[in-house]
């Protein structure tokens, strides 16, 4: 049974004070950029005491201001960061869509990029070949699939990325913000695909500032503030509380 559990997660790290011969530029921070939370000296507490349980069929919306810790939490759940404390229990195949351009070669065709992206995700070559037509069909790229990736619009790139990531039916899909990309028709198809994933006993974790998207898509909300949980519960109750003056 697919599940995702976080127990008292904590992510603390030191801002990299790199060894450098350059004079320090006091206009910019010493390092670290995408993660927020509380800082003390050069130590950042990006997440502290974060616990939640997700079961098959859950669609969790991550909300919070920039720097609240949403991306850090997604990267912890995916395994890019290791927690400084607490533990994560994942039961199910995990895939992530953080940066839609990541892994795409601008000079290679869409078709070749499907192969490369599949290999990077650890899929067997035979499986990639078997899914190729389905991915191309879902991406709606038509003849563009044999054109270089650099000729694609942002929406086309997003469609291809989404088609690849969801073609292998990840049991746990982590997404950061970008799902708003693409035209309304594609967004509707993407929403349907996500519904299918959830119906197949999947879990989706989606970080976004678009409350309308989260309201439509998610059944649970986790709000982060300075790396700690401000709210975790049903999305209906969250948005109801938000709508009150």
């Amino acid at each position: 049974m697919t599940s995702l559990r976080a127990h008292d997660l904590r992510l603390v790290y030191k801002l990299p004070r790199k060894l450098s011969l350059a004079l320090r530029d006091r206009r910019v921070a010493d390092g670290g950029s995408s993660v927020g939370g509380r800082t003390a000296g050069n130590t950042v507490v990006a997440l502290d005491g974060v616990s939640f349980d997700l079961e098959a069929g859950d669609r969790l919306g991550l909300v919070g201001t920039n720097g609240a810790g949403k991306t850090s939490l997604l990267k912890l759940l995916y395994g890019i960061f290791e927690p400084s404390g607490g533990r994560i229990e994942r039961s199910g195949r995990v895939d992530a869509l953080f940066n839609i351009q990541l892994g795409f070669r601008p000079e290679a065709t869409g078709r070749r990029n499907i192969v490369l992206r599949g290999l990077i995700n650890g899929w067997p070559r035979a499986e990639i070949d078997r899914r190729m037509d389905e991915i191309i069909a879902f991406s709606e790229l038509g003849d563009f699939i044999d054109a270089p990736f650099k000729s694609y619009s942002q929406g086309m790139a997003a469609r291809l990325a989404f088609a690849i990531a969801t073609s292998f039916e990840p049991e746990i899909l982590l997404m950061d913000e970008w799902i708003g990309a693409g035209d309304p028709a594609f967004q509707e198809r993407a929403r349907q695909r996500m519904e299918e994933l959830v119906a197949q006993a999947g879990i989706i974790v989606l970080a976004s500032h678009q409350h309308s998207l989260l309201k439509r898509t998610c059944n649970k909300i986790l709000e982060l503030e300075s790396g700690t949980i401000k709210y975790f519960g049903p999305s209906a109750a969250y948005f109801e509380a938000q709508s009150k003056p």
Binding site: S34, Y78, G79, I80, A96, L102, I120
Partner: peptide
């Protein structure tokens, strides 16, 4: 950098 910060390779 983008690969290291975006994948678990």
């Amino acid at each position: 950098q983008s690969f290291i910060q975006g994948t678990v390779l």
